[in-house]
């Protein structure tokens, strides 16, 4: 093991059972946790993808058409399908986590967790419809 022993003033280093790098493969809930955490890669990809789009828009019509052609490639579509699945997973887990992290009280009574989750889905729907309208509607 390459673990460096570090000095602490409070206690001696205790013995910890070494945990495998692949500990999360044993149980579905552990795997779901790692998949949820790995959604961060696809959130980052989402930003990079959008930056490439905005850059192409800024460079003129020809460059924008080239961007659309590249995005047509089956491998890029596949990558974006995987990314879409991960960001939807992120969205669902995030919306269900919020009521557990945040207790909202109205008039001294706790707002039901389901209501908080539902209000976020409504916000998501409003944003999605607005983006759709802004880009392709009207």
């Amino acid at each position: 093991m390459s673990n460096r022993a570090s000095y602490t003033e409070f206690h001696p280093r205790w013995y910890r059972r070494p945990i495998s790098t692949w500990w999360w493969l044993g149980k579905w809930t552990y795997l779901a946790f790692i998949l949820r955490e790995l959604s961060s890669i696809f959130v980052a990809w989402f930003v990079i993808f959008m930056l490439l789009l905005v850059r192409a828009i800024g460079q003129g019509d020809a460059e924008y058409q080239r961007f659309l052609d590249r995005v047509d490639h089956p491998l890029v579509v596949l990558l974006n399908l995987v990314a879409l699945a991960f960001v939807i997973f992120h969205m669902v887990t995030w919306f269900h986590l919020t009521p557990q992290a945040m207790v909202v009280r109205v008039g001294g009574r706790r707002v039901r967790p389901r209501l908080i989750a539902a209000s976020q889905y409504i916000a998501w729907l409003v944003v999605s419809v607005f983006v759709l309208w802004l880009l392709v509607g009207g």
């Binding site: 959130v43 989402f46 993808f49 959008m50 789009l53 995005v71 890029v76 579509v77 990558l79 974006n80 399908l81 990314a83 879409l84 960001v87 939807i88 992120h90 969205m91 995030w94 919306f95 976020q120 916000a123 998501w124 944003v127 999605s128 983006v131 759709l132 880009l135 392709v136």
Partner: peptide, 15 residues
């Protein structure tokens, strides 16, 4: 913000 914006934008431009 990622939960609100990423699904629709990836769906449109990616799929």
């Amino acid at each position: 913000l990622a939960a609100l914006f990423a699904p629709i934008l990836l769906f449109l431009f990616g799929v």
